[in-house]
């Protein structure tokens, strides 16, 4: 078993995007290509774990504008591979290698 395969088993590669002004909380960078380490003992990455990882590792300021309790704050849409996370089990959704997860704040300006 090569080192590469061990690494890919321990992490999940994701493309994360922040939009609608939410990127301000992430150093004004919209796209992040990241490898999320799996929790010890778990084989799959769930959205709930991803949110905690993002808060602890990517978020730079004002966590209350990103999360509320275990979920995202009201007014943030979460899209997993261009699909509303309401259609795929929200916090319980399982993420696969190379999935794209978009966090987008709803806009109100006009």
């Amino acid at each position: 078993m090569g080192t590469d395969s061990v690494e890919s088993n321990d992490t999940v590669h994701l493309n994360l995007e922040f939009g609608g002004g939410l990127e301000i909380l992430f150093g004004s960078i919209k796209c992040h290509s990241v490898d999320i380490p799996l929790n010890s003992g778990s084989e799959k990455l769930k959205m709930e774990h991803l949110l905690v990882w993002v808060r602890d590792n990517l978020l730079q300021e004002r966590p209350e504008f990103f999360m509320k309790e275990k979920s995202v704050r009201p007014g943030v849409l979460v899209l997993i591979n261009d699909c509303d996370w309401e259609l795929c089990e929200r916090l319980n959704a399982t993420l696969e290698n190379n999935d794209t997860v978009v966090f987008i704040s709803t806009l109100h300006g006009g």
Partner: peptide, 25 residues
């Protein structure tokens, strides 16, 4: 259905603060 709870105060940016490139609206 999409937004049962309004966003917290301060999370909403306005054109008069955050700006808007005219062609986008």
């Amino acid at each position: 259905c999409l937004f049962p709870v309004p966003p917290p105060q301060g999370a909403c940016q306005r054109c008069s603060d955050s700006g808007v490139l005219g062609v986008v609206p």
